[in-house]
Design a protein around this nucleic acid. Structure first.
Lengths: 183, 183
DNA sequence: GTCTATATCAAGATAGAC
DNA sequence: GTCTATCTTGATATAGAC
């Protein structure tokens, strides 16, 4: 009876965890293979290079957000409820994980020196900001909503950073409270 | 006539630039040596390892902040003037540079996976937050000042991140305006 | 599809001449 | 203090057996 074959999707999910904790350059293909219970040589059967794998991880993250998180902004519920749901699901999926945030970490580590990941990273920021803006637009002007959406993104990614240094979850709670106090 | 000998301080200044642009792991000792117009072997005359060099870079950054930036919060000027001066000098020295912010970049890249730099990184965050808090305390309560100081740090580091993706300087200007509007 | 073995190269670091 | 040369390790990636 053969062991269950690993799938590309499982590899993407596991690799996301490893990249988020260790960063892109500090993660070796052997680290990723070990996390998947594969030999290094076997791992290349699924992804031809580390760069292509990371690109797939980021693209997969964007797809998941487009499917499961961003549409929350378009639901028929009141703005306050949509914002609460968006912040909570986004935080759980993207921000409040061991090692921080794949989006923030990868942006800080590679955006300047390695341009390859930038389009996908930007697409994630675009979608996040656009979703927040849609909800703010229920109560605020076009201009104000855009600024508030950007401010919310900046604050939450800053919270990821401070949490890496100080631990706990109070930075996230404070960001959440400040946003919700607007509704 | 021999060429001017390079000093440890010059190496620290140049290495800061290289680390900020390329990150810690993606920077090779040969990159640092080349930036200093030295051969790789010569470079080890000054610093015995990459980790010790990075530690010295961060410690040097902390020393510069303690000497030149943080004391702005203690001056006799009105709170609004102190805040303006602190934000402007801090932004110029730390945030608005090619490659972003050595503090934010290094925190995101290494805080989880490499604990060695954390104490110095935390000391920088501590000093930055404490300085902002001192100024807020002129107008706000203890509790509120602490939260506002943390929020300001989060927003500005978030601005560094968004600037890496979108370019320009409007994220910094928006953060600046939001803080100054409190005075 | 997974394994072992290996090729290739780059990076951290050292040795010793000048 | 700077250089060239070299050691050693670890990382990306490939080859070929099973």
């Amino acid at each position: 009876m053969p062991l269950k074959k690993i799938t590309k999707d499982e590899i993407l999910r596991i690799s996301l965890d490893v990249f988020r904790k260790n960063g892109y350059h500090h993660t070796a293909m052997s680290d990723l293979a070990r996390a998947c219970n594969l030999q290094k040589g076997s791992f290349y059967h699924y992804f031809d290079s580390k760069e292509l794998l990371m690109h797939a991880v980021l693209q997969n993250t964007l797809d998941n957000l487009k499917t499961n998180i961003f549409p929350i902004a378009d639901s028929a519920e009141p703005a306050r409820d949509r914002m609460e749901q968006l912040l909570k699901t986004f935080s759980k999926m993207m921000l409040m994980n061991e090692g921080g945030c794949i989006l923030g970490n990868t942006t800080m580590e590679t955006a300047y020196s390695i341009p390859e990941f930038k389009p996908t990273l930007q697409a994630i920021f675009d979608g996040w900001i656009a979703s927040l803006k849609k909800i703010y637009l229920g109560k605020f002007s076009e201009e104000t909503s855009q600024r508030m959406a950007e401010q919310t993104v900046m604050e939450f990614e800053g919270a990821v950073m401070l949490t890496k240094i100080y631990g706990g979850d109070r930075f996230f709670r404070d960001c959440y409270s400040r946003v919700m106090s607007r509704f």
